[in-house]
Design a protein around this nucleic acid. Sequence first.
DNA 1: CTCCTAGTTGAAACTCAGATGCAACTAGTA
DNA 2: TACTAGTTGCATCTGAGTTTCAACTAGGAG
Lengths: 152, 152
Amino acid sequence: MPLPETEIPGRLQAELMARGLRMTRQRRTILSVVETAKQHLDATQILRKAHKIDPGIDRVTVYRTLNLLKRHGLVDELDLMHLEGEKHYYERHPQRDHIHMACLRCGKITEFESDLFDRLKGQIQRECQFHIVVSRLEVGGYCSQCRSATPA
Amino acid sequence: MPLPETEIPGRLQAELMARGLRMTRQRRTILSVVETAKQHLDATQILRKAHKIDPGIDRVTVYRTLNLLKRHGLVDELDLMHLEGEKHYYERHPQRDHIHMACLRCGKITEFESDLFDRLKGQIQRECQFHIVVSRLEVGGYCSQCRSATPA
DNA sequence: CTCCTAGTTGAAACTCAGATGCAACTAGTA
DNA sequence: TACTAGTTGCATCTGAGTTTCAACTAGGAG
């Protein structure tokens, strides 16, 4: 089955290789963890998952690889309003930027795409003559469930 | 000259006292530093400036006071795209939220207010039923000067 | 004005994410 | 198959921010 686009096991890998970067065993592992993540993971969680695939992998390699991906715009670094400590979270850079909403009560993270957001970025580029490379809109507050819940 | 609003030396102080919080010598000092800051300061810079006014002041007190102000929504905590390390920057919470643009080349921080931003927040509150307490839109990229400058 | 106490402070020690220096290793190429 | 620039792992470091606790004090009660 020589499909033209196998896509699933390695869009990030493909993109890194297309940039002429070396594909090591460790990088492959970390990339697959990031790629298949169901939620936002921090560096420690990524290390833990990578460790299950390849126990020899080191913390430092995870940090270095995440920096590499960030520099190449392949992953986005999130703070998620520092709801718990100062760690960073990572997600594959999406085709279309979205907003992250963090509930200050239950900690749930919700994502939201908006045309207004796209237009706002356009306005910044035009009016400020600022060339946007990365953007991050994070909002802290109370989600619909927590708003209607009885106060803790 | 009993002006009804002396305003200048202590709007933050007044707001804290209005909330029934204790006004200590140290807090007064830190508040005045934040209040008169010409640019975004991190905790260490705030400590340094506070130290010039009151050498006895401790790091810990600065951190605690900044947390207090943050909890009361009197200052906003910024990351400024982590241009240099993981520290946080602080600014008085403005009447109207603005966007922070960080130049990845020269490090300059520019602020920008936008009607679209206000509308976007309104949309989030309405469509997501999310009650916004704090919002932070940070953008990284290249400012107009650096775009036209010769590559380093 | 004096006393009282809950809230605040400072000093030291701690935590934790992330970075760095360097010798050993290896992917991709000649 | 050999070579080498780039990568890895380990040990160590850094630096922001937090915690613990005894001593102190702002601001209200008497």
